Computed example of a mutant assay.
Amino acid sequence: MKDDEPEDTGSTLPRRQLGRLLREAREATGMSLEEAARLMEWGKSTLSRLERGKSERVRIRDVIGLCELFGTDEEKTAAIRELAEQAPVRSWWRSYGDVIAARFNTYLGLEAGASELAIFQPLIVPGILQTTDYARTLDRQYFSRDTDEELDRRVGIRMQRQHIITRQRQPVQLSVVLHESVLRTTVGSRQIMAGQLRHIADLSTRDNIQVRILPFRAGFPAGIVVSQFIIMSFPKDSRGKPVEPTVVFAESFTGDVYLEETGDVRRCRETFRTLQRATLDDRPSRDLMREIAREHDSER
C-alpha cells in the first residue's frame, strides 16, 4: 500500500456516492449535463458539483426533483434520498436496517473502482475469493427465505466481482491476509472446503494476487484482537490525484463503517503490515492451503 498519495479529494463518501448515483441516473436517460441543468433551472456548474460530490449544501427537494426528472424507481430514489440526508463526515456508519443496506450496496461501487485492495479476514473467505459452492452455502443459510433463482442471482453477482482481479487488462492488485482458522472452519462440507482452498491457492499464483496465511502459532501480532477490514486505494487522474481518497471498510453483523480520515487509514495500514509480517511467505502459505485441502479430502 502507498503512503505518499494525497488522501483528500475535497469530498466525503456519502456525497461522492450520491453524486455517482445521480450521474448514473442522468446518463441512463441519455440526458446531457447541460440539458438536465437547464430543465432544473440551474447553472451547469451547480449540477456538475453535485455529481462530483463537491456541493457544500444538498437540499432534499432538489435531489427529489432530479429523481423525478430522471424517472428513477422507488427503490433507487429511496437510496438517493438516504444518501442526501447523510451528514458529510469522513467516518460514515451504515446500519443494516436502513434502506441502502437492504437495497443498494455502496461497497460494490467502491470495490469496482479500486486499483488496490488489502484485506484482513480472520473468520471467513472474502467474497472476492469465494467459489460458487462456498458462496451458495453461506447465502442459503443467511437468506434462508430466498428461492433457488434468487440465490443464483446473489451468487452470480459475487462471481462477477472476481473479474476485477482476473481480467487481463489492469487487474486490481490484491493483498490478502487470512487467518489459519479460515482454512480449517468447514463451510458446507469437506468437499466444498477442499475446492475452495485449492481455488485460493491457484489464484495466488497470479502476479497481481498475494494471499498469505497468519498461522495459529503467530498469536496476536498486533497485541489485540483485530476484526476484519479492507483498505481500498484508487487510481490517480491526469493530475496525479486519486479519483477517490483511500477508504477503509469494516463490516459486522450490525452494520458497516467507512473510514477516510488520514489517521484512521494510516493506523489500518500499519496494522495490516504488522499482521503481514507475522504471516507465512507466499509459497509456504500456498503449500499450507493445499495441505489442508488434502486433509479435507481425506476426512470426507
Results as ranks from 00 to 15, higher is better:
D202Y: 03
T166Y: 06
Q191V: 09
R212I: 09
V225D: 14
A194D: 07
P221I: 05
I230G: 01
D73E: 03
G43R: 15
F229M: 08
V58F: 00
D202N: 14
D3L: 15
Q17T: 04
F216T: 09
R283P: 06
Y142W: 15
E56L: 10
V176Y: 02
D133C: 04
R161I: 00
L50N: 05
A79Y: 09
D297L: 13
G219C: 06
S298A: 15
R94C: 05
A101M: 10
Q86I: 05
Q170Y: 10
F104W: 14
S285C: 07
G10V: 02
E74A: 15
V172Q: 08
T166E: 14
L13V: 04
E41F: 11
G219L: 02
R81Q: 12
E180F: 04
D202W: 05
I200N: 06
R277A: 10
Q228P: 10
Q141Y: 11
R198P: 03
F220M: 15
L50T: 04
S45E: 11
F216K: 08
D264K: 15
L288W: 00
R206S: 12
V187C: 00
A28S: 13
W42T: 07
T137K: 02
I124D: 11
L174Q: 04
T205Y: 11
Y142T: 15
R154Y: 00
R184T: 06
E75G: 08
L183E: 07
E41W: 09
E7H: 14
L33Y: 07
R61W: 07
E150T: 04
T147F: 09
Q160C: 08
G156C: 00
F234Q: 05
L39S: 08
D202S: 12
I64V: 13
P6C: 00
A101T: 13
G97E: 02
E51Q: 12
T166V: 11
R283V: 15
Q168Y: 07
R169F: 01
I231S: 03
E82I: 09
Q162S: 05
E82Y: 13
E180C: 01
D98K: 01
L22M: 06
V58E: 01
A114C: 14
T9Y: 11
E295G: 09
T9K: 14
G71W: 03
T166L: 09
A114E: 06
A194T: 10
D98L: 01
R15D: 01
P245E: 00
L280T: 05
S238N: 14
V63A: 01
T185I: 03
R167S: 06
R90C: 02
S175H: 11
G263L: 13
Q196D: 12
T186W: 08
L39Y: 11
L50V: 07
Q160D: 10
E295P: 03
T46L: 10
E7K: 11
M232W: 03
L174F: 02
R61F: 05
R167M: 01
R206E: 13
R267W: 04
R81N: 03
M40S: 06
V187R: 04
Q168K: 12
L110Q: 10
K44H: 10
